[in-house]
């Protein structure tokens, strides 16, 4: 009974997200599909993940993800995993970090990370900027997201490593990106 009601709520939440995603011009359907357990086919979507190059700039790695309602969470989970094996790019998120949630609040995506994003961070104005803008640039590829707020263990934070101001949601930084 309770399970059934929860299911309804989940479906409601997901449909709201799905409605939000309709009409995202940024996306290119790859046309490929994934076979899922009940035999139906799920479409995939090619997304941009921003990782760091050796020179401290952000570069895009493309990855195909299942095109469903949890795509924003999935894209953050992929960012945490790091660049593909054999890539010349490097991680932007400290080891051990877990993405707890991505909630859309108007045009602001609120991403909650575990404390490792702070306690395992290597510091520096550049190091901090690369971590934050890899997250912000990646999430802002979605048309529904204009700004990104970062929380840690559910709490608002003032700064990640003592430099950038996190009291206001961040907008993407294109100056840090190299093609």
């Amino acid at each position: 009974m309770a399970f059934w009601r929860k299911g309804i709520v989940l479906v409601t939440c997901l449909s709201i997200l799905a409605i939000g995603l309709v009409g995202c011009g940024n996306f290119r359907q790859t046309g490929s599909t994934n076979s899922i357990a009940d035999g139906t086919l799920e479409p995939t979507l090619q997304v941009n993940l921003y990782f760091s190059d050796r020179d401290g700039y952000l570069r895009v790695e493309k990855r195909d993800l299942p095109d469903n309602q949890r795509i924003m969470l999935a894209v953050m989970e992929e960012l945490v995993k790091g660049p593909a094996p054999g890539s010349k790019l490097t991680d932007t998120i400290p080891e051990g970090t877990v993405v707890h949630s991505v909630i859309l609040d108007g045009k602001v995506a609120v991403v909650d990370f575990s404390e490792e994003i702070q306690t395992n961070h290597w510091g520096g104005s550049l190091g901090e900027s690369i971590t934050l803008f890899s997250i912000v640039n990646t999430l802002c590829q979605f048309e529904d997201v204009e700004r990104v707020e970062i929380t840690i263990e559910g709490e608002k934070v003032v700064t990640l490593a003592g430099h950038l101001d996190l009291t206001q949601p961040l907008t993407p930084n294109e100056n840090l990106v190299r093609d």
Binding site: S52, G56, G124, S125
Partner: peptide, 15 residues
Amino acid sequence: IHANANLDRSKHGTS
């Protein structure tokens, strides 16, 4: 006054 850091140790220079 600060000193910078990056995950990739090859990064160097003044900013």
